[in-house]
Nucleic acid binder design. Structure first.
Lengths: 198, 198
DNA sequence: GACAAATACGAGCGGACGCTCGTATTCTGC
DNA sequence: GCAGAATACGAGCGTCCGCTCGTATTTGTC
């Protein structure tokens, strides 16, 4: 637990990268731990020197994604008054970086975009979901202070769900079609949110 | 292939019911064929008297769902001029029965709502997807005849995706919350489609 | 250089899963 | 009522998967 942080940390890095890649290609359940180890260039035994089990890998990956998303939010929104921005620009400022993130981290959707995760994984990704819901809820509350809490909660849930649903389409498409679908995502969000927080 | 249609057909019925229930509870991959057989009250060997393999069960289930959906469409829309209906009513006339269908057939979403099906299943559910896309495409074309085909196609894809994303939320909720989420689904569709085919 | 901790290996264990197969039973046609 | 087809059974085969464990190597500390 204490020493060899250089080699060890590097291995952890390799393993998480390999796992993300494998999850993106085949999904969580269809990816074997031996495949992850092979992709990371290590033996099955070595993998379990750093992770207790397969779920633990997903959990660590989800934590990493959550941290990256938090950074992304901080970087994109620092100084801007989100509650005052026109809805168009607010949506663009959020979906743009989000699409980039999903393109750069294609393993993300394997953990986040599935409606029916295996029970063992729900615990691993629950913090990620909770963090996102909290952020969107805060944003909506700031823009529409008079809204009842349960409506805010429901609206945030639906908005997140819409993004979750559209993202695989966007990521899977290429070139012009991807840009068009990004526009559709913005249109969907605008059409849904305008009457509530417009 | 010819005889014993009474017992045999009854078994097929039992198996499909059991499979739908099991898929709804645990998802496709986590459901074992022996579990399906046990739920159907038969032995593993008997199951394979009627289905070639696990995928074949999913395929048959998807076909059955497709047929039921086709019936549902016919029953709900007979005689009505969909292209002339106000958008609100059109959306309500579609989402209402669709929610009922999903409530009555909870195994449906395990085959339809997942973004990342195992490769062996994509072929099994492809006809279902194609049928739905064709129907929505036709509907949109009828309502907005001037629209370019690629826009119609993309709009239909997105609309289906929105319903797919919201349905698990609606089915999982109960009572008032379900009704509220149904309203949100209609609001989402209306906000998205109004500028295009309003 | 000695020693212990951390890292690395990979054959293989235990168990689950999809599916088979030999055999027994039930139904249908004649 | 008999022959054969359809249905039924369930132990178990082959395979893959998550994971272990005995052992070997590398690294930090003194």
């Amino acid at each position: 637990m204490t020493k060899r942080q250089a080699r060890g940390q590097a291995r952890i890095e390799q393993i998480l990268m390999a796992a993300a890649e494998a999850f993106a290609e085949s999904g969580y359940e269809a990816t074997s731990t031996n495949t992850i180890a092979a992709k990371a260039g290590i033996s099955p035994g070595s993998l379990y020197q750093f992770f207790a089990n397969k779920d633990d890998i997903a959990h660590a990956l989800a934590e990493r994604y959550a941290a990256q998303l938090a950074e992304l939010r901080t970087a994109a929104f620092e100084g801007a008054d989100l509650a005052a921005l026109p809805l168009d620009q607010l949506i663009g400022a959020i979906t743009g970086p989000l699409v980039e993130f999903n393109l750069a981290n294609r393993g993300f959707k394997a953990l986040f975009a599935r409606p029916d995760l295996p029970p063992s994984l729900t615990a691993a990704v629950a913090p990620l979901h909770a963090a996102l819901l909290g952020r969107v809820t805060a944003l909506l509350s700031a823009r529409a202070p008079g809204l009842p809490p349960d409506v805010v909660q429901r609206t945030a849930t639906v908005a997140i769900q819409l993004v979750r649903a559209m993202m695989p389409l966007i990521v899977a498409a290429g070139g012009d079609e991807r840009a068009a679908l990004e526009g559709e995502l913005r249109a969907v969000l605008h059409g849904y949110l305008e009457p509530v927080v417009g």
